[in-house]
């Protein structure tokens, strides 16, 4: 996003990147290097680029991102843990010309809220789900989440997650891809600048689909959680690139309503 070029003799100054207008000025509470901040920024950019901030209603999850309404400058409602898709569906049905997104973490979406996740997708509800997968419950101290990697250490898998007693990481995109309802399902990763650009593009695709009334879209964003990955931010980003992507392939699963192989 950039402002109009400013003339100064033959010298012009053009802005190449600005903090998105849809992002409030308050600095976030997220930990240094946390992917939520990045997703908020990209989400705000998309709201600006598509010109939909004033008719967008967001649902914040229970989790680190519950405070999204302090950062995103659009109408936002909290939802009980796991119930954001239900809240979002109702709002969209009541206000079909508004843009509605459900912003959720892995515990919210894939553990307690799995029922709501699957049924909103199965109904093909014309909403956009922004699913930030950082493999742990962040706000509550880094417990195992449905997407915790096998062998990954968390406060509730001190010896590393073992498949025998806890099962393996849960693949939401693949799961929802078996349903007929969804229009767009894509997984991206905040594993570097290219991954960020790809996330921006994916979010734009999803929100554009909703604007066009095409139906349910979900973007799963593999995201670093430095504190509970016990890594400094740069290494956490590498963890996403090397460990998470290996377990969660980055690709488009559903495009324009059609399953991709």
């Amino acid at each position: 996003m950039s402002d109009a070029p400013r003339k100064a003799g033959s010298r012009t100054i053009r802005s190449l990147y600005r903090r998105p207008a849809a992002l409030k000025d308050t600095p976030t509470h997220y930990c240094p290097g946390c992917g939520h901040g990045t997703v908020h920024k990209l989400l705000a950019e998309v709201l600006d680029t598509l010109g939909i901030r004033e008719r967008t209603i967001g649902i914040a999850p229970v989790g680190c991102a519950v405070r999204a309404y302090y950062y995103l400058n659009c109408d936002i409602s909290e939802a009980a843990h796991g119930r954001a898709p239900a809240v979002a569906c109702a709002i969209k049905r009541c206000l079909p010309d508004r843009i509605v997104f459900s912003y959720q973490g892995d515990g919210d979406l894939a553990a307690i809220g799995m029922g709501e996740t699957i049924h909103a997708a199965n109904r093909g509800e014309n909403i956009t789900v922004v699913f930030v997968n950082n493999t742990v419950y962040g706000m509550t101290g880094g417990q195992m989440a449905p997407t915790t990697l096998t062998g990954q250490r968390t406060s509730t898998t001190p010896g590393g997650r073992d498949a025998v007693s806890t099962g393996g990481p849960l693949h939401i995109c693949e799961l929802l891809n078996t349903l007929d309802g969804p229009w767009h399902i894509e997984r991206v990763a905040l594993d570097g600048p290219a991954g960020v650009r790809r996330t921006r593009k994916a979010l734009t695709t999803a929100f554009q689909a909703q604007i066009d009334g095409k139906g349910y879209s979900l973007i799963e964003v593999l995201s670093p959680c430095p504190v509970h990955m016990h890594l400094p931010p740069v290494d956490a980003m590498r963890f996403v690139k090397e460990q998470m992507v290996a377990s969660f392939p980055v690709k488009i699963f559903r495009q324009e309503g059609k399953r991709l192989a």
Partner: peptide
């Protein structure tokens, strides 16, 4: 070189970038 990678990667939207072009 104006690749904007720093602005892209920043989780806090703390980086803004302009370009000054001097034409001949």
């Amino acid at each position: 070189i104006g690749c904007l990678q720093c602005a892209d990667i920043c989780p806090d939207a703390a980086i803004e970038i302009d370009v000054e072009e001097v034409g001949r």
